[in-house]
């Protein structure tokens, strides 16, 4: 594998099967260095498995690639030493104190000058006074901040965050994203999986995965164009009744409601224009640029929940 100077992650054809079921199917992805890359998809779509294969925690059944220039099949140890991986569930030791947890992780990575590094991290977190508190007694938001600090303790070049904000309150989520942007500005590449749309919008690049297959990927702002969605913004009276009628129309791929506003989207622009002309009534129809929000609702409605069956 030749070292890829542009990309932190570059994989092709990744495939993983668990007892006969294909969980990830022929997956390609390029994550540019220094980017915040959003990894989206419904539950069970294979996000976690893909992340694990990319950082050498799981061996793919097929495919190849490099992470930080190291082969994901043969150089897992080198990758692990340079990657920070934050799991979906809090997975530090609840029966160790905050300091003990950080110290343990630092020892695992053989962090130089360990003691001062741990003390420094505690100060950055604002947890110096509570260093002796058991990690299990922290609130959800604090646990997540501690987990982030723990996976940053060895100064990784790449951060893999697996649904880091699941079950965390909005304020803590905002703070968390501030932190992520700070790290990204400092040159750390961040790959983050999520199913919150407001988080996806903060990413530079996005990949959408469903049923173990990548449906789309690219620069976040270009995703709606790539899907080819045209959207109308509809306001006015009796919007609920209109919504029901619009759903039955073939030209309409989706109707998303934002308060008193309907966003009506379709992939066939001409058909949608014709519909808009036909439907004009008491409501006001305005052509608008399709945004990431519509794009995601569109993608998600296509691939509801991957546990519900249906082969891809």
């Amino acid at each position: 594998m030749t070292a890829d100077v542009e990309n932190a992650i570059s994989v092709t054809g990744l495939t993983k099967r668990f007892s006969g079921r294909t969980v990830v199917d022929d997956f390609d992805m390029q994550v540019p260095k220094g980017a915040i890359y959003g990894f989206l998809g419904p539950n069970g779509s294979g996000k976690t498995t893909t992340i694990r294969m990319m950082c050498g925690l799981l061996t793919p059944d097929a495919g190849q690639g490099a992470c930080l220039g190291y082969d994901i099949l043969t150089e897992q140890a080198k990758i692990k030493a340079r990657v920070g991986y934050m799991t979906q569930k809090f997975s530090l030791y609840e029966d160790l104190t905050i300091r003990e947890n950080l110290d343990f992780i630092a020892r695992m990575f053989a962090v130089p000058d360990r003691r001062s590094r741990v003390t420094e991290t505690l100060a950055d977190l604002g947890l110096t006074d509570r260093a002796g508190q058991l990690a299990g007694t922290l609130s959800g938001g604090w646990k997540q901040r501690l987990a982030l600090a723990a996976c940053m303790i060895h100064d990784p070049q790449l951060l893999l965050l697996d649904e880091p904000t699941a079950g965390v309150d909005p304020k803590a989520r905002r703070d968390f994203w501030d932190e992520i942007r700070k790290l990204s500005a400092a040159g750390v590449t961040v790959l983050v999986s999520t199913h919150y749309m407001d988080e996806a919008i903060q990413c530079d690049f996005i990949a959408y995965i469903a049923y173990g297959k990548k449906l789309i990927s690219g620069v976040a702002a270009e995703i709606p164009k790539m899907i080819g969605l045209s959207t109308y913004r509809v306001t006015g009276p009796d919007i609920t009744a209109l919504e029901t009628r619009l759903r039955a129309e073939d030209a309409v791929a989706q109707v998303a409601r934002f308060g008193a506003v309907l966003h009506v989207s379709g992939t066939d622009a001409a058909a949608l224009d014709a519909l808009a002309a036909r439907m004009k009534g008491p409501q006001k129809w305005e052509r608008k640029e399709a945004e990431l929000e519509e794009a995601f609702i569109y993608l998600m409605s296509g691939a509801a929940d991957n546990f519900s069956g249906a082969a891809a």
Binding site: C55, L57, A77, K80, A81, V83, Y85, T87, K89, F90, S91, L92, Y93, E94, I105, M108, F109, A110, A150, C151
Partner: peptide, 13 residues
């Protein structure tokens, strides 16, 4: 069971 094995395997241990 507590999920801490995930943290462990993500380290070079």
């Amino acid at each position: 069971e507590r999920g801490t094995m995930e943290t462990l395997i993500a380290t070079p241990v």
